[in-house]
Design a protein around this nucleic acid. Structure first.
Lengths: 175, 175
DNA sequence: CCTTGACCTTCCCATGATGGGAAGCCTCAT
DNA sequence: ATGAGGCTTCCCATCATGGGAAGGTCAAGG
């Protein structure tokens, strides 16, 4: 009956695109699907359920690597719900962090938008801010967004800041 | 003076990594920097100011393509502040959308977390939800997150849903 | 039986913004 | 003159996703 679906059927039934199903298989998130004699992947209810699980977890923002852990727990009948909840809490925290970052951006920008009269004249506090604002976080090493911008913006005292380079010496015409 | 900085100096002064400065140049966000006879890029105050502008805009979440527009307006003395504000408003809207998506995830997940006792027993509403929850948006085509998940999850009536494929026919031993 | 069209397969490429690292050249201070 | 630490370009990786090409398969209709 519902057994032996093709990848397209499984995609439709699970809400995961065929492309992604293959991808999940390739990274080992899904066990390799069985194949027909001619090489077509086949899926049954079990697999579709797993796919739905994955899709739902993705919808909750879980990155694939965390979904891997969730799947392990799902299959492990000896799991403790505490482990599952811990993973979920981590995810909530990740989301909260990201939300806070975006919210800070939105707030700052909204502030600027409100300060801009937005008429035909060229004066605009938004551009002025972008052009002149100093480093965003004023005080000491504080709440720098935990995501992106990891690279140390400065390596202290490496070579003075005085500009004494290139005092007009046109040597070596480059290859 | 402060003229003729190397890319490293400009990076330190602007808060944009040397790697990104080269990247911005490569995609035409920055005009190609001047070079010394030996091929080193050189930067002056003007360029550093532009870099700071870019960095600040990135900090506000502007994608590079929108920054390109902002820079055009910045340089255009005949701009109207309304154009600038419009761009900023779009960005606020983009952020708000993203925030709403993440917030929805966080809320849903938090709900599940609260329902899970999180002790040594294996029963867990979180896993149960992931395993059994239907398509996330219940009612009619509603607030599907505007980002990601664009692909139409189903193309209506193409080929019936009955599973009648692969009725045991081991043909063609696949090369 | 053969064609047709809708599927399936694999493989490669692109996204956006960022970093890592290699191989090789350049500059400056010792 | 040498060595450290810049700089240059080029390639690769990320993360999850889609696009598309080239070619095989399958079911149905003529």
């Amino acid at each position: 009956m519902i057994e032996a679906m093709t990848i397209g059927d499984a995609a439709e039934a699970s809400g995961v695109s065929a492309k992604m199903i293959r991808y999940y298989e390739s990274i080992g998130l899904m066990p390799a699907a069985e194949r027909t004699a001619s090489g077509y992947r086949t899926y049954g209810d079990t697999e579709v359920n797993t796919l739905r699980f994955i899709r739902r977890a993705r919808d909750l923002g879980f990155p694939v690597e965390r979904i891997r852990l969730l799947l392990d727990l799902w299959r492990d009948r000896a799991r403790s719900s505490a482990e599952v909840r811990s993973l979920a809490e981590q995810q909530v925290a990740t989301l909260a962090t990201r939300i806070a970052e975006l919210e800070a951006m939105r707030k700052a920008l909204l502030h600027l938008v409100h300060a801009c009269h937005g008429d035909g004249r060229p004066d605009c506090p938004i551009l002025e801010d972008l052009a002149t604002a100093p480093a965003p976080s004023a005080g000491p090493e504080s709440h720098l967004p935990a995501s992106r911008r990891h690279g140390p913006p400065s390596a202290p005292g490496r070579r003075g800041a005085a500009g004494r380079r290139f005092a007009g010496r046109p040597a070596v015409p480059r290859a």
